[in-house]
Design a protein around this nucleic acid. Structure first.
Length: 281
DNA sequence: CTAGGATCCTGTCAGC
DNA sequence: TGCTGACAGGATCCTA
């Protein structure tokens, strides 16, 4: 599931391929995913890409921005002259455009940006750049790791919440950017049971968890994200984190730490939750 | 404030 | 082979 590391990977790719280019045409094939006026972005030059937790902002020179959330299965894929040796597309992409291609941006100098999304939960919106920070989702975002979420702040957030710790980690209004994969792996690394009430964590547990979150997210960023479902970078290539899952998706396998217990899968808040009942108390 | 469930959407997979 | 139903899941919305 695209989370902070995956969206950071998208941001890097879009920055590399799109900045300095103009949007010459926009084809919206599925109205549901696109809101705002196409005319507001036609002819505009892309000047920068920002990321707010799992949301991408593509800033244009004419003071408009495109906001986008890829949710579970959205993909931004670039094809064109900025790809040195065009990488072979992951088989998670299919043909371009394909039946899951919902928006196509034609750029100057022959580049094309495709937005694909199998499950159609993702979205793209045209907003005024100065309104980006007022956009409801972004306004409500909690501090995010590597940008505002200090250890002190993290401890404070954890100490005053009665929610289960895993649910808290994934609550974007409390902490920005963490989703199911990295929440599961961080809790395992910190040896904290996902079902614990957040305010029951001891100070050492809070500290271990904070470090664990940074560790798994850094690893995710370094490996270009997790491509276990649909995620691919804008180059069309897959990330590698799925080859290094600690517990996510590992139900039934022996815990790599204690080697005594098998990884269990339960549902918390309707989300698959993986943990070792021996290591994570 | 928190908890739990439904919703959106479609590919995949189990079962018959 | 082909149909049916369950399931996954980020964020939101609604009810309790």
């Amino acid at each position: 599931m695209p989370e902070l590391p995956e969206v950071e990977t998208i941001k890097k790719g879009l920055t590399k391929y799109l900045v300095g280019h103009k949007i010459e045409d926009v084809e919206v094939r599925r109205a549901k995913v696109f809101s705002g006026e196409v005319k507001d972005i036609l002819g505009a030059k892309i000047v920068g890409i920002r990321r707010f937790a799992k949301v991408i902002a593509i800033d244009l020179e004419n003071n408009y921005s495109l906001l986008a959330h890829v949710k579970l299965t959205g993909q931004f894929i670039y094809r064109g002259p900025n790809l040195k040796n065009p990488p072979v597309l992951s088989n998670k992409v299919g043909t371009l455009p394909g039946k899951h291609t919902h928006v196509i941006f034609k750029l100057d100098r022959g580049g094309t940006l495709y937005f694909n999304d199998v499950r159609v939960f993702g979205w793209i919106k045209v907003v005024k750049t100065k309104e980006v920070l007022n956009f409801d989702f972004i306004k409500k975002l909690g501090p995010e790791p590597f940008d505002g979420l200090t250890e002190e702040k993290f401890k404070e957030i954890v100490a005053k919440s009665k929610t289960m710790i895993k649910i808290l980690l994934m609550d974007q209004t409390k902490i920005g950017g963490v989703g199911n994969i990295y929440a599961n792996d961080a809790l395992w690394l910190a040896q904290v049971n996902p079902q614990r009430k957040a305010d029951s964590l001891t100070i050492p547990e809070q500290e271990r968890l904070y470090e664990a979150i940074l560790t798994v997210l850094k690893k995710g960023i370094k490996l270009g994200g997790a491509s276990e479902v649909a995620f691919v970078a804008p180059s069309g290539e897959e990330g590698e984190y799925q080859k290094h899952f600690l517990v996510y998706g590992q139900a039934g396998k022996v815990c790599p730490r204690c080697k005594k217990e098998k990884i269990k899968r339960i549902a918390l808040g309707g989300r698959g939750t993986f943990f070792c009942s021996y290591c994570q108390k």
